[in-house]
Design a protein around this nucleic acid. Structure first.
Length: 852
RNA sequence: GGGUGAUUAGCUCAUUUGGCUAGAGCGCCUCAUUGACGUUGAGGAGGUGACAGGUUCAAAUCCUGUAUCACCCACCA
């Protein structure tokens, strides 16, 4: 079939993907090689469209997997979807609001099943987006984070940790978002610098001997104060320690205590202590056995623990009321404006309230310890490596992890509380029941669900059917985990800890972290800014292959990068170039009849093969090293600069059909991981093979004669020089004189490619002697014309002389000769020799024109 | 407050353990008009590698310091 003039992605992509799927090409299978390669796709949230980050993730992972598949390894790219507990919950709540409803209108069970259906609708959506991106994922292994095996693994992790004493339930301060009504892990809280006030409040001593002034940014919490603390070394307050103050606005009497935590230089050096609403105060409270009075409830309103006049006010109103009452009572001595860091909900921006709540916590110390030693021993390779060091630092400061979430959407925590003994908890996975009876006693299920990250921490092996699955035996640890650098802490860190804990092994051998894709101006993409670029739009506009190559081009691990459409356009043009190379070769073959075997004959043939050799070796090693952009770059330039611009052009003088075909086959293979649709489409249209390109073998390295190749390189340089001279002197089809067998042999090639009028062999040259070759070749032009070029000649000579001086000074340096490697020194010597020859020729010409 | 990264051509970015004349894409200038491709071909211009020191025969690369930007972490009331 005749190929059309330009490549039309829309015409092929859907059908090609179906071809791969129908042929089970994505199912891992060894082909003449017993290696394995495995990546699990970071499961996208099942609540919307794929974004740019997914495009990059899938692009990178698919390139790696397709390469290893073609190498013959059993290669698995396992797809999945994330129920994304809290994230989806937020999306669904907005959805409810649009319908004029709220979460309070439904029971938890109702909500759960509604969201289940909501998510199910979206799953099809992004599965088709995976297909559009060309991701060669094994759909038969598709895993959803609420699949039975994942839930079961979450329970067994929980149970094991429970049994090992790593899970504990405690009434501790949690980061609570009063808007969403749930607690968070520390990592889910963002700190923002905000303008606020520092209020100075006088607390009168009970014995009437004076007062102590405390400074606070949150005066409303004074209603829950249970002490005032000062530094034990602070002389100002030495006599007050042990006394009590009468807490204003309340009728309570609270002690003045001494604690090292207090910084004497900040504020007044005296701190009000509210153990129920401040993490530091909580710790001081623990040390001094202070009562914890919760004056702010989970609804964000003042509780009945506070005086009647404040009850039911929200935090802001309560603050105003407290300040105004204190002012009236003349207890407010000073107010300062300050800028300080305030914790906010990462999703809605509500100020986080540290509130007391009974939650499940994981003691992360022992888990982090193992992870640290694995990372220090470099058992996992990181791209870029500095993320490894960063992660170690993170583990070292890691605090216990609150895994309870007060939302309906998630995996229920398999723990039940004794109805008669609130401190007695048992593990049981009958979570569908609200109550169970064990040994004749009634137990109530914990209404909370797990933090999503708790279950996804086991993703690398839960997806592989740990502990007995064949996949686990074959593919674990994963070859690589490729994901965004932004989830190094929330996800990667925990997968490593959990993997080591549950399986005793690292979960993956390599971690490749890509940076954020920003908008064209380097701004973070976000819905609120309205600068989100949809990858699928770009796929539709430029084709999937162009998008993939454009987005990985210039990509380097760990670095953020703006979306650059010019790169996608460049890649689109490259697709078209490939397409037209195929068209040309197809035309050649159509007119050729019998196709000979791919034996190199001409010097161009040998040259092309040595370039191909070099490329195959280089691109393979770059791909093994996760240097995708550089691999793409080297293939791109071989195809365009070497194969199309030189080999194909040369073949117009004398074609070696067998080698053209071989070259194209090799190119299609090398390009396949990057441009899977296009290359498979060409492969199919050409109909040279019954097998699919996706499962064909990665090219082997061809044999070629290097000395023949060098001859072509010389001719190539000669041609380039003639082109340069023609351009500079505005010559039209100049003639060439030479006394060289090589030039004689290649005179047709030179005539065509250098746009020469006539080539003639002669004993005596005239005109301009070419400098790029050792062969004696002259551009046959008059001195008149050449004189117009004198200025350029002088500049060239100067440049060459500068180089010579440079080389000479290097070679006269004793240290250089003694310490630099021989190869480097020899290179310098031959460069010097070359430059000297060139200088001689140039100076002769310059002299000729200076004297005339 | 602590940490990490960045700073290279007009723009966006590469450059594996220090070693040829620091590269690419896009943009720019000049030319080519059609027999694979104008989503093309040929030629070209353009860089004190942020700045200041240091180590080395040799530094964009290693070290120290400075500046600017970005991100991450952090319980100073």
């Amino acid at each position: 079939m005749k190929l059309s003039k330009t490549y039309d992605p829309k015409k092929y992509e859907t059908a090609i993907y179906k071809l791969w799927e129908d042929s089970d090409s994505f199912v891992p299978k060894n082909r003449g090689n017993d290696g394995t390669f495995s990546i699990v796709v970071p499961p996208p949230n099942a609540n919307g469209d794929l974004h740019m980050g997914h495009g990059l993730t899938l692009g990178i992972e698919d390139i790696a997997v397709r390469y290893h598949r073609m190498k013959g390894e059993a290669s698995l790219l396992l797809p999945g979807a994330d129920h994304a507990g809290f994230e989806t919950w937020v999306v669904y709540e907005k959805h409810l609001v649009k319908q004029g409803k709220s979460r309070f209108d439904f029971s938890r069970e109702d909500l759960y099943s509604q969201i289940w259906d909501f998510v199910a609708q979206n799953k099809d959506n992004y599965q088709s987006q995976f297909r559009q991106l060309g991701a060669s994922v094994d759909w038969s292994r598709f895993t959803y984070t609420l699949d039975n095996k994942i839930v079961k693994q979450a329970y067994s992790s929980f149970k094991k940790m429970w049994d090992d004493g790593l899970i504990y339930r405690a009434n501790k301060l949690v980061n609570f978002c009063t808007y969403h009504g749930t607690g968070f892990a520390d990592i889910e809280v963002t700190h923002k610098d905000s303008d606020g006030h520092l209020w100075y409040i006088d607390y009168p001593l009970t014995d009437g001997s004076g007062e102590i002034t405390v400074a606070t940014t949150r005066p409303e919490t004074m209603l829950g104060d249970t002490a005032v603390a000062v530094n034990p070394k602070d002389k100002r307050y030495k006599t007050m320690v042990g006394k009590t103050v009468k807490l204003p606005l309340t009728d309570r009497e609270i002690p003045i205590i001494a604690d090292d935590y207090v910084d004497s230089d900040y504020g007044t050096g005296a701190v009000k202590i509210t153990p129920a609403h401040d993490p530091n105060d909580f710790e001081i409270g623990e040390r001094h056995d202070l009562p914890k009075i919760s004056v702010i409830g989970h609804d964000g309103l003042i509780t009945h623990e506070a005086p009647e006049e404040f009850v039911g006010l929200d935090v802001i109103k309560a603050r105003e009321a407290v300040v105004s009452t204190l002012t009236k009572q003349q207890l407010l001595s000073k107010t300062e404006n300050i800028n300080h860091s305030v914790a906010h909900c990462y999703k809605c921006g509500t100020v986080i309230q540290p509130l007391l709540r009974e939650q499940w916590f994981i003691d992360t110390k022992p888990l982090a310890k193992k992870a640290i030693s694995a990372l220090k021993a470099k058992q996992i390779r990181f791209y870029p490596d500095n993320k490894r060091t960063q992660l170690i630092a993170y583990y070292e400061g890691l605090r216990d992890w609150n895994i309870s979430r007060q939302i309906a959407w998630g995996i229920p925590i398999p723990a039940f509380r004794n109805a008669n003994d609130p401190d007695k908890w048992i593990f049981d996975d009958r979570v569908k029941q609200e109550t169970i009876t064990v040994d004749g006693e009634l137990y109530h299920r914990d209404p909370d669900v797990f933090d999503t990250w708790f279950s996804s921490s086991s993703w690398p092996y839960a997806t592989m059917n740990f502990p007995d699955g064949q996949d686990f035996a074959k593919f674990y640890p994963l070859s690589a985990m490729e994901t965004g650098a932004d989830i190094l802490y929330p996800w990667v860190s925990r997968m490593i800890m959990f993997g080591l804990y549950n399986t005793g092994r690292i979960p993956f051998e390599n971690v490749y972290l890509h940076g954020l894709i920003q908008d064209e101006h380097g701004q973070k993409m976000s819905k609120s800014k309205g600068n989100v670029i949809n990858p699928i739009d770009k796929v539709n506009q430029f084709g999937s292959d162009a998008f993939r190559m454009g987005i990985i081009s210039g990509e380097s691990a760990g670095n953020n990068r703006p979306y650059d459409e010019s790169k996608v356009i460049g890649a689109r043009n490259f697709c078209n170039k490939l397409w037209n190379i195929a068209r040309f070769i197809q035309d050649q073959i159509d007119g050729a009849g019998e196709i000979n075997s791919p034996k190199p004959k001409s010097i161009a043939d040998h040259w092309m093969l040595t370039k191909l050799q070099h490329l195959t070796v280089r691109s393979s090693s770059l791909l093994e090293d996760y240097r995708f952009s550089e691999a793409y770059d080297s293939i791109y330039h071989f195809v365009w600069d070497d194969f199309a611009d030189w080999f194909i052009e040369a073949s117009k003088t004398s074609a070696n059909i067998g080698l053209l075909k071989f070259g194209l086959e090799s190119i299609l293979k090398l390009c396949h991981p990057f441009a899977p649709f296009l290359t498979e489409a060409i492969w199919k249209e050409l109909g040279w093979s019954k097998e699919l390109l996706i499962t064909s073998a990665w090219p082997t390295i061809p044999e070629a004669d290097n000395s023949q190749a060098k001859k072509f390189e010389e001719i190539k340089q000669l041609i380039t020089e003639v082109r340069q001279l023609s351009k500079a002197m505005e010559l039209k089809r100049p003639n060439l004189l030479h006394s060289s067998d090589l030039v004689e042999d290649e005179n047709q090639l030179i005539t065509r490619m250098a746009r020469i009028g006539e080539i003639r062999k002669t004993d005596k040259g005239r005109g301009y002697r070419l400098k790029s070759t050792k062969q004696k070749v002259w551009l046959d032009i008059s001195d008149d014309i050449l004189a117009t070029y004198t200025k350029q000649l002088k500049e060239n000579l100067k440049e060459v002389q500068r180089q010579i001086a440079n080389y000479e000074s290097r070679l006269s340096n004793k240290g250089y000769l003694a310490k630099a490697p021989d190869k480097v020194v020899n290179d310098t010597k031959s460069s010097l020799a070359e430059a000297e020859t060139k200088a001689k020729l140039l100076s002769e010409e310059v002299k000729r024109f200076s004297s005339s």
